[in-house]
Amino acid sequence: MLSPEERHEIEEELERYPTKRAVSIDALRIVQRRRGWVSDEALRDVAELLEVSVDEMDSVATFYNLIFRKPVGRHVIMVCDSVSCWIMGYDRIREHLTKRLGIQLGETTPDGRFTLLPIVCLGTCDHAPAMMVDQHLHRDLSPEKIDGILAEYP
């Protein structure tokens, strides 16, 4: 069931669009912000509230890169794999992250602390390579710098 806070936030969004369906993406993001991901149950609840079929809602949820349909760790690392970061050493950054965390891209550490995902260009190409951890952007990365960054996310 959606919490009263989630419902309230979604209803606020409804005032900004002429149709209920238009709020789909905002609503999924609202749910995910509080729960980390969008479960089947949450998806059904959002679909019901916005009067969209569950299948249609899922087709939207699975289309967008930032909506997670599987559980994620406490912190989500999104490492940029696009062209400027690739030129500036993405392979080394990815290798360091996978070695340090002991997981591959798309996986979560066994202790549930980190999920590691690739992301498209983060729009900070003059400071490549770059990654985001949760809501924070980290730039001009080097393997040494990464260890210090990871320590900031217990």
Binding site: R16, Y17, T19, R21, A22, V23, S24, I25, D26, L28, R29, L50, V52, S59, V60, F63, Y64, N65, L66, I67, V120
Partner: peptide, 29 residues
């Protein structure tokens, strides 16, 4: 004039004019 900020769910296709409109309508872009 009313003005609102919409944070995208993330997909390159949203930058395409009509894809952006579909995304704003809550659909696939």
């Amino acid at each position: 004039l009313q003005m609102y900020v919409h944070a995208s769910g993330g997909r390159y296709m949203c930058g395409e004019e009509t894809g952006l409109l579909n995304a704003l309508e809550g659909k696939r872009a």
